[in-house]
Each structure stands twice: as C-alpha cells, then as structure tokens.
Amino acid sequence: MPHVFWADEQGLPATDRGLAYGDGLFETIRMQGRQGLLLSRHLARLTRDAARLGIPVSRRDLQSVCARAVERWPRSDDEGWVLKLTLTRGAGGRGYRADPGMTPNLLVSAAPLPPMPDPAGVVADFSRVPLTVNPLLAGIKSLNRLEQVMAAQDIQGSLFEVLMSNARGELVEGTRTNVLLKTSLGWVTPPASTLAVAGVLREWLLERLRARGEPVLEQPITMADVTGPECQGLFLLNSVLGVVPVRTLADHDLPVDTGLATIFNPLELLE
C-alpha cells in the first residue's frame, strides 16, 4: 500500500521524487456523487502504467483509496466534482537513481467540476510548441508535462484548446485532449504509440465505434487533413470534459457533426 497523503491536510514531502524529477504519474477522474466516470479504466491505466515505470501499486489499493475519498469528500448524487490521484515513486534517493524497495506516495485531492464546453462547438488553434513523445513513455500520463504547460500559455480568451504537432508536422493531441477526426473514409485518430497521453475516453470511444461497425483508422493526421474538404468534423476527447466538437480551427470554420452525442452519455459511464 502506498503512503497516502490527503491534499486538504498536507502535501508531499520535500524529498518526494515526483517533485524533484517528475518521477510519477496521475489520473484525473470525473466524479458524480460517489461514482466515477470510466473509473475502472482510470484505475487500470494507473496500475498498468505505474508498472511500466517500475512503481508498485495494486488496483485493489487504488480502489480502497477512492472509497475513502468519497467518504472524506461527500457529495450529493447530482453533484459533479474531480478526483485526482498523483502517484510518485516515493521519497528519497540521491540524484536520479532511486533507492531500492521504496514505498510509493499517493497524493489524493478533490476539486470542483470545471465549466462544460459549448456543445455547439469550441474554438481551437495550432500550437507553436512542438511535442516530443519518447516511445518508452508513450501514452503514460506522467508528471512530465512541461511541453503541455508551455503550450497552454497560449490558451486565452475564447480559445478552448491548442493542438500540438510532432517533428514531422503530424497532429498528436491537444494540451489536455486526444483528437478524433471524422472523414468520408471513417474515423481517424493518431496511433496510441505516438501519443503523449492515451486517454481512457479515447479508448472507450474507439471500442464503441468499432462495435457499431464504423470504420476506425489509427494513422497520422496532418494539418491539411483537418482543414481540407475531407474533414467532416473534428472532436477533442477528455474524460472530464467529454466529447467536444471543434467549430473553428485557426480561423477556419469546420463542420460540426452531432452524431457522437448519441453515443456518449456521461451518466451511463458512471461506476
């Protein structure tokens, strides 16, 4: 069992490796009362990706902490909020090399649910900050998010999100979202192996589309793909904010498709 720290009581110790080196990962879970949206997928990803980093934690321990969190911060069944789990390798170790047998630290915090985006579509732009994805860390929601932090500085005014590209000019994801493009050939999204964060909503939605018999292609997306005539809709995916259509990208008006609204209903995904 990791050492559990409750954010309303105390923070992590100064010697924590998550603070010193970004040595850890996190999950941000949309809650409704005592239930969590896609909760089992969040806990499965945290357990799986912690193992990839060599941080020992069990899903049972994480479930126990979530149960304690809803008792600690009680909400009515119709009240939305956000539960965040930040898992680090622990405290100690001189320099980058960690001491053997360290006990992980788990920081648990609660926050209000942010305002939901306009279902009629949002405004987005291309980021000037390039995104580099280390294949060893691809998909992991690690604490190393400096590129996203820098890119997010440009999100101001009516701008909802900026889309980040790799060195080849291919769109990877937003600062806090995965991308899904609708075309005449079907749905297109970048492969999970190329993503900085492989979102749980992305995973669920792709499974749902394939189960409905709709073609889903995991391949690179270029700027021309989303601004060209083949684009039938661009969506940003975030498990807290949902499925968000883009109506304007870099001053280019995009078609807004409402079809995904019939598939994604947050209240049906509570666990």
Rank of each mutant, 00 (worst) to 15 (best):
G186Y: 10
V162G: 06
L181I: 06
V200A: 06
S184Y: 09
T175P: 05
L205M: 13
A196D: 02
S193K: 12
L171Q: 03
A198V: 01
G169R: 14
R168I: 00
E214R: 15
L195E: 00
R208G: 08
T194F: 00
T194G: 03
R208E: 15
T194A: 13
S184G: 14
R212C: 14
L195N: 00
N178K: 09
A211L: 13
R176K: 13
L185C: 11
T177Q: 08
W204V: 07
T189P: 04
T194L: 11
S184C: 12
V188A: 05
L163E: 01
E170C: 13
E173D: 05
A192E: 12
E207R: 14
P191Y: 02
T194W: 04
R212A: 15
A196W: 04
R210L: 13
V200W: 01
A211S: 15
G186T: 09
M164T: 09
T183V: 10
A192T: 11
E170F: 07
A198Y: 06
K182T: 02
R208P: 03
E207K: 14
N178P: 02
L206V: 13
W204A: 08
T175S: 14
A167P: 08
W204S: 06
V162P: 07
A198L: 07
T175W: 08
N178I: 07
